[in-house]
Amino acid sequence: MIQVTNLVKDYTLAAQVYRVLNGISFTIPQGMLSAIIGPSGSGKTTLLNILGGLDSPSAGQYLLNGRDVSHFGPDEWAHERNHTIGFVFQSFQLIPALSARDNVALPLVYRGIPQRLRRIRADEELEKVGLGHRIHHRPQQLSGGQQQRVAIARALVANPPVILADEPTGNLDHATGLEILEILRQLSQAGKTVVIVTHSQEVAQVCRQVIEIQDGHIVTNTMEMEHSL
């Protein structure tokens, strides 16, 4: 579960202060599939980076799974990301020199898991995203959709409860984008908290919670109730 209260982010550029996030408060429950939408430059990426501890807020409170992480330092965050957060990026962010398997296994390296076990786990995750036959391929030898699936496998390999995805379908064609979205939707159904930053209305419609921000403010926050029961 993600809870933020009065989150503020200022950037200082040439002695001028820019307020990119101006008092953001919301709650994303565990197992939710959540979309953050808004115009370009509204602060979506900044918000997601703060949720993942890559960036730090100027003010406000952040509770991650009930723990106050507002004042975590870089190394506490490194540990936190390794254990509770899986990142998926628009530009995939795979390491070109490494095979699909070694890319997927990366988070486990920083848990001190031995190489043999890392490979077994990585192969399992690649199998799940339908790339069991591509474990030795380098990123350049894979299509965009395949690269994004490798990135998802990497986000999942350490089994984190939270997945943060910044425009995960932004660099993919329509059909491939829908495939990736379906994988993320199933993950939320399996109990993971999935937050997707997106420009796509179609993606947002699939999500059960939609948070819209504009100029650093939340303009709407709608959550669909669980009807399926």
């Binding site: 993942g52 890559l54 870089p74 190394d75 490194a78 540990h79 990301r81 390794n82 254990h83 990142f87 962010q93 795979l94 390491i95 990366l106 988070p107 390296v109 920083y110 848990r111 990497r154 350490a158």
Partner: peptide, 8 residues
């Protein structure tokens, strides 16, 4: 990338 994945 490594930092995002948990490298200190």
């Amino acid at each position: 990338i490594r930092r995002a994945l948990g490298a200190t």
